[in-house]
């Protein structure tokens, strides 16, 4: 999985925003707002990756267990998928 083409990622004041700027739209959607950890996961998703790789990267970067990392990664991935930002 990876971020869809046209998704712009920006960090402002410690928060990361992923916005689907690639397609015109009628309704207000295609936006996910995240904390620093979410921003790290989004950074990984700029290239093709999978859940196991994300969990591994999270446990290497942060002092968390694989279980906690997996739960957090799933939350971010669900939010991104729900907003239509993943391929």
């Amino acid at each position: 999985m990876k971020l869809k083409e046209g998704v712009i990622v920006n960090e402002i004041d410690g928060q990361t925003f992923a916005v689907d700027a690639g397609s015109g739209r009628e309704r207000f959607n295609g936006l996910v707002r995240m904390n620093k950890t979410g921003g790290f996961i989004v950074g990984l998703l700029q290239n093709e990756t999978d859940m196991d790789s994300i969990v591994r990267a999270l446990t290497e970067k942060y002092d968390v267990t694989a279980e906690v990392a997996r739960v957090n990664a799933a939350k971010v991935i669900d939010a991104l998928a729900g907003a239509g930002l993943l391929e």
Binding site: N10, V19, D20, F28, L31, R33
Partner: peptide
């Protein structure tokens, strides 16, 4: 509702 919840919005334009 978004402004009510967060107070600011980072987004893209159309057009």
């Amino acid at each position: 509702e978004y402004f009510e919840q967060y107070g600011d919005l980072t987004y893209c334009n159309v057009g």
